[in-house]
Design a protein around this nucleic acid. Structure first.
Lengths: 144, 144
DNA sequence: GCTGAAATGCTTGGACG
DNA sequence: CGTCCAAGCATTTCAGC
């Protein structure tokens, strides 16, 4: 499905999502047009789900980031966890996991008080049987 | 430190990291020059730490994503955890946390076998007193 | 699948009010 | 903060192999 050039393009765009098509073309040894087509295909097929600025939320006043570990009832489809998250705007990312917990949600709230409210929303969902909330103190992500 | 316009710029760039400066300027009601200056300041002061393409790793062959919970010795500065991560290329993100675990690392490896090797590297660091590894089955992130 | 070229629009840096 | 300029790039689309 993905050849070596696609993987190289993905590697470059993950390291810097603002790299230009021209720059990528030089790096992979092709011209602009086919690289552009490949990127569009990666976007259409859902391999690339978007582009985002990475923000250090600990440097923002009025913003608290937290990780909430979620445990859910035995037979719940993992897909449902993902779908559920869309209805809570403070949830910015959800990963479903093999192990315990079953999933983790990443939350951005405006204060600790607001965070508590969001976690309560998650807890009272019925399908969620347990949570553990961890406030983010610092963040680092690879930039290259 | 950050005014409302800065927050709006950050909101727009988090939703789409490839938005043009012109586009952002239109949305926030300013011209290009000051918006460009603001973005540069946000980058310089470390509020914006980078830009990245978001990739659904479950759609890529030869790629496994995992979350590793890290517990470290009592007095270890959290900054050291972040610094340590840079030396392990498979670590793409680290969050330091208030609670237990002390931090979580996000890993991208080429296989389960490779993942095991990376986790062992983390475990034998000396400062890490315990790990728990969770393989990512599915991912969702807010796109708007 | 690729290349190459042309038109359009964007960015970047600077100078200035 | 705004405006202007100017050079260099990037994107997009088209033709053609």
């Amino acid at each position: 499905m993905l050849d070596e050039i696609d993987r190289e393009i993905l590697r470059l765009l993950r390291a810097d999502g603002r790299r230009t098509v021209r720059d990528i073309a030089r790096q992979v040894g092709l011209t602009v047009a086919p690289v552009k087509r490949r990127i569009q295909r990666l976007e259409l097929t859902g391999v690339i789900t978007g582009y985002a600025a990475q923000v250090d939320t600990t440097k923002m006043d009025g913003e608290v980031e937290a990780i909430v570990e979620l445990r859910v009832g035995g037979n719940l489809e993992l897909e449902l966890i993902l779908a559920f998250a869309e209805n809570v705007p403070e949830v910015v990312e959800v990963l479903t996991l093999a192990g315990d917990p079953d999933a983790i949600a990443r939350i951005r709230a405006r204060s600790i008080h607001d965070l508590q409210r969001v976690v309560n929303v998650l807890r009272t969902d019925g399908r969620v049987t347990g949570t553990k909330t961890l406030v983010v103190l610092g963040a680092w992500s690879r930039r290259s």
